[in-house]
Amino acid sequence: MRQKQSSAAAVAELFEHIVRSIHTSSFTLGLNPAQWNALRYLHSASDSSRSVKAFARFQMVSASTASQTIAALVRKRLVTKERDESDGRGVVLALTPRGRDMLQRDPLQALAEAFAMLDDPALTAAAQIGADVARNMFLVKNGKDVNLSNADCAADEREDPHHRR
């Protein structure tokens, strides 16, 4: 058990180095990590999700934080705000050509390339481990038992009063 905890701590340290490296390299080309994240979101979001409110909900950040991030991107002329033709009241966010060009230099590409160097089984394993660790991390954050199996995790979500379906 102690051996496993020690290994887990070492793996956590390794992941922390990777995350920190990506975070540091995301302060580039005049943008910060949150702004890169917003550009990626707007690139892949559907029409109905390209709003400050949807972005805030998706990332689980406050509306004011999301609003500041988007406002910075608008000032940098990477994002535009357009009236939503479908309801006439809301505002739809869109990447400008400059915003799309910027994504060609996304610092996250370095990590994507590192994953692409893995063979197929290793890449599949990385995806599964990433999904499991992400899920376990949120269980830990919510005060659940660290050593839950996948089945237990699902059972706990069922009992979570905040669990949205």
Binding site: F58, Q59, N142, D160, H162, R164
Partner: peptide, 13 residues
């Protein structure tokens, strides 16, 4: 998404 697993992470996963 939900309190236990944000949409950003669940959809990336």
């Amino acid at each position: 998404g939900g309190a236990s697993f944000p949409a950003a992470i669940s959809l990336s996963a």
